[in-house]
Simulated assay, not measured.
Amino acid sequence: MKKILFLALVAGLTLFSSCSVDDNTADFQFEFIPIETVEMPEEFNFGDTHTISVTYKRPSTCHSFSNFQYLQETGNVRTIAVVNFVTSGNDCEALEDDFKTETFSFSVLDDEPYTFRFWQGKDDNGQDMYLIYEVSVNN
């Protein structure tokens, strides 16, 4: 019985190792998508959790929302970018005006104002552009 279990384990490991993620044949990638608009409170209440809505333009039928890249920088500065999961293939269709809205929750844990920088792409010189909001906090 132990030999059968061992052989089954070895066969299973062989199957999994043949599907290695290191073989560089991925049919997808992740891509930052510029943020078009943001809906958020004009001010926060200390200790509360607030919902922030972000709208972006989906470039093709092969793009789908993956998550947000959320960076907590020095002090109360937050940088947010939309990340899309993009599948490869010839059946992708370009989209003209397909806007998607995603939300995230933000917990206010400090009584100092917060600065949010929402990534909007790069300018002609390759510099990152941001939509910037400064939000005060009520105690």
Rank of each mutant, 00 (worst) to 15 (best):
C92M: 08
L13A: 12
K122T: 15
H63S: 07
M129A: 11
M129Y: 02
L95M: 15
A11V: 05
T25I: 12
R117P: 01
D23P: 01
D124G: 15
N84L: 01
S17V: 12
L95V: 10
L5A: 15
N45I: 15
E134L: 08
F106A: 09
N139E: 13
D110R: 15
E36P: 03
G12S: 15
T25S: 13
S136I: 08
D91L: 12
Y130M: 03
V82G: 01
S105Y: 10
T55G: 07
T103P: 03
S17G: 05
T101K: 04
I33D: 02
P34S: 08
S107I: 08
P59K: 13
G89Q: 01
L71G: 11
Q120A: 13
G89E: 02
T79C: 08
D91Y: 09
H50I: 10
F32E: 04
G126N: 11
N67F: 07
T61R: 10
L95H: 05
H63Y: 06
E134D: 15
Y133H: 14
Y56Q: 13
N76E: 04
E73T: 03
E112P: 01
C62H: 07
Q120F: 09
L71C: 04
N125L: 15
L95G: 12
A11H: 04
G75L: 01
V54W: 03
D23M: 11
V82W: 03
Q127S: 13
E134W: 07
D128L: 02
E73Q: 05
N125G: 13
F118H: 04
L9Y: 05
Y56A: 10
P59T: 14
N24I: 10
T55K: 10
K100Q: 14
E42T: 12
D124R: 13
S64C: 05
F85T: 02
F65S: 05
G75T: 02
N139H: 09
I80V: 09
A11T: 08
C92N: 05
F118L: 07
Y133I: 07
E39C: 09
S88L: 01
V38L: 06
I4R: 15
E73I: 03
N138P: 00
S136P: 00
D23R: 07
D111F: 10
A26I: 06
N125I: 11
E36L: 10
A8P: 00
C62L: 02
S105D: 12
E42M: 08
V10H: 10
G47C: 08
D128A: 13
C62M: 04
I132W: 01
L109E: 09
L71E: 14
A94K: 13
N138E: 04
D23G: 06
S64Q: 08
M40W: 04
V38W: 07
I35A: 09
P41N: 08
G121C: 02
L131D: 14
N67D: 13
S64E: 12
L13Q: 09
V108Q: 08
A11W: 01
L15D: 03
E73L: 07
F65M: 03
N84H: 12
V108P: 05
D23A: 12
P59E: 12
R58T: 08
D128C: 07
S18F: 14
S20C: 05
